[in-house]
């Protein structure tokens, strides 16, 4: 079957995709060719994806990142806050001595040394070569040990039946899930949905980029401004950085 021309059937879907591109007004896709990986090339550790969140720009009451995440990944609550999944949440921080309040999003911190990956008995919890921490739901047995181990409370267990999933974001009852850094978008060369929404509807507080590339905007900003990471003392080397926290 080496000579088999399976691409014949692709005429239809390729045409549809092209139409989608044209739909975006006045836009073509050449620009990202340099950045987007070919579909058949595996990810490598040359890249390490990360986020930088400017806490001063993030405001109370804005939940653009949270709603975009839910919309993008098809996360629907059942009105049960204790068991509903939350990949990203807005945290309110108050210094009891000064009364100063800060608001910012917290999600999976995509650690370089993730405790969730260490403890997972089957290897379902894993770190991709480019630093994105994921759950392989095909081999997740739902033991929740990763949730016990995560220092950031970043993971949710799917407590109920799920239907109407997004085709690119599979999720189902009985497995653990967390922020995927919108891996399907990143693989296509786009930024995570939260970052995009923060820029479009929020306050432009979030920046996505390659931490391994010294010339990337994120690396430049981390090199220029004072930043910190949550519980950096644990030595897990998170991939999410906070400015003005």
């Amino acid at each position: 079957m080496s000579e088999f021309d399976w691409k014949r059937r692709h005429f239809m879907s390729a045409a549809a995709a092209a139409a989608g591109v044209v739909l975006a007004p006045g836009v073509t896709l050449y620009g990202i060719a340099a950045k987007a990986r070919e579909a058949d090339v595996p990810v490598t550790s040359e890249t390490r994806w990360g986020l930088l969140i400017d806490v001063n720009r993030c405001s109370d009451g804005c939940d653009a990142c949270v709603s975009a995440c839910n919309e993008e990944n098809g996360i629907e609550g059942h009105g049960r806050p204790a068991t509903d999944a939350q990949w990203i949440r807005k945290v309110q921080l108050r210094d009891p001595r000064t009364g100063i309040e800060k608001h910012f999003p917290v999600m999976c911190q995509h650690c370089a040394e993730p405790p969730c990956v260490d403890v997972c008995p089957t290897g379902a919890s894993f770190k991709r070569a480019d630093g994105i921490v994921l759950v392989d739901k095909h081999i997740c047995i739902g033991c929740r040990y990763c949730m016990m181990a995560c220092p950031y409370k970043a993971r949710s267990f799917i407590h109920e039946n799920v239907s109407e999933q997004r085709p690119y974001a599979p999720r189902g009852k009985g497995t653990v899930e967390s922020c995927t850094m919108c891996v399907h978008r990143v693989d296509a060369g786009a930024v995570p949905a939260c970052v995009e929404a923060c820029g479009e509807r929020g306050n432009g507080a979030m920046l996505f980029g390659d931490l391994n590339d010294p010339d990337s905007e994120i690396s430049q900003r981390i090199a220029t401004y004072a930043t910190r990471r949550i519980r950096a003392d644990l030595g897990v080397d998170p991939g999410v950085w906070y400015q003005n926290l």
Partner: peptide, 22 residues
């Protein structure tokens, strides 16, 4: 009590040797 007890076979065939559970 596992979320996916039907995957017990996975737990017995796929290991992460850094896990205390494993």
């Amino acid at each position: 009590d596992l979320g996916r007890p039907d995957r017990l076979i996975v737990a017995m065939t796929t290991y992460n040797f850094k896990s205390v559970f494993a």
